[in-house]
Design a protein around this nucleic acid. Structure first.
Lengths: 209, 209
DNA sequence: CCTACCGATCGGTAGG
DNA sequence: CCTACCGATCGGTAGG
């Protein structure tokens, strides 16, 4: 309790370094130095290096899940849910840039049961996205043939946001999410161009999935 | 020359292990064992562990660049180029699953000049995607307001494909790319649903870039 | 929280 | 390509 601040400092250092150099390339001495301690002293506050990785990863996983769960539970129509799901994701990334990177890139360094637990949360997150999209299909808003690929595209976008999103830039998470949603909901092409239909409709041959 | 086969074997082992466990978590002894050698014997064929990472990363980077350059150089209309760019990318991923993972995840482990060289190729690849999209905007096919976000979405999708694409699955790279292109070019929503316009058009407030 | 240090393992080398 | 081994560094511990 008394060293709550110190522990947060250590967690912050670990987040920064894991995000920057990766888990395995970060040494316990790096973390200690950034926390203003010597390496041996770290162990007054943590048990293992892997504890830090798990704590960082698990915490942001919960944020992703809580945010998306609230969207799924709402009564909004599917396209609004879709937008809000993107907003939620990008907000979590924007508020936890380093942790989001670690969550996306470094969770494989976890072992055994803890790795399984993070994997379960990742799977659960994917299920919630699927729920948003399949609800849209069921209510007649989205193309059934697009469902599986729409999920892949959405998850790709979501999982890549931390690579390019700049929280200190001009666009808020809500604005970025809104424009991404525009691209995904409306498509790239202008209606006039789209009606020219330059190639055969591959999607018409798609099973519902 | 005489041990060309052995060197390829070592490269193959390194690709597999770097992809699976990451560069830093893979030891020289892991690579040697998978190649049927003892660790010391590896150094008859390689100079350093980092050489292996660079060779793997650089080779697949060139494949990405050559494929996309051919698309950019073609005379096809922009939406066809967009489709073909996705096809090219997914073909490279499908034919080099492990190398593509390493390219996306592990290149940061490179140091100094070699890291710069891979970074340059990554930048060049992004420029080629930008060319495909801006050409589409210039010719009036794509929304100017979507350009930056369309690039982010396209690169996100491209960079995430190796996470879920199954080369032994039923869909060829061309089919997967075609359906992804459908989602991106046409949007998620059915025309009827899309005309209901559930939320204000954020995109109308977008500057051109 | 520091001093002092541990066993293990790392990438890589020498000599044959 | 193996045997034998290196210096360095790793995550972590004991004792205070």
């Amino acid at each position: 309790m008394a060293d709550r601040g110190r522990r947060d400092q250590i967690l912050h250092a670990a987040r920064t370094l894991f995000s920057e150099k990766g888990y395995h390339a970060t040494t316990i001495r790096d973390i200690a130095q950034m926390s203003g301690l010597l390496s041996g002293s770290l162990y007054a506050h943590i048990r293992t290096k892997e504890d830090l990785l798990f704590e960082i990863t698990d915490e942001v996983a919960d944020q992703f899940l809580e945010g998306l769960q609230a969207v799924v539970d709402s009564a909004d129509p599917p396209p609004v849910k879709f937008r809000r799901a993107l907003v939620s994701h990008i907000q979590v990334v924007a508020r936890n840039l380093d942790a989001a990177r670690v969550f996306s890139h470094e969770w494989r360094a976890l072992q055994g049961e803890r790795r399984d637990r993070i994997q379960q949360k990742r799977d659960e997150y994917e299920r919630l996205w699927t729920a948003v999209l399949s609800e849209g299909v069921a209510a007649g808003w989205f193309y059934p043939s697009h469902q599986r690929f729409a999920r892949m595209v959405s998850l790709s976008v979501a999982n890549w946001v931390y690579q390019w999103y700049d929280p200190s830039g001009q666009l808020s998470p809500e604005e970025v999410a809104g424009r991404l949603a525009d691209v995904l909901l409306t498509g790239l092409q202008k209606p006039a161009a789209s009606s020219k239909a330059p190639m055969g409709e591959v999607s018409s041959a798609c099973p519902t999935e």
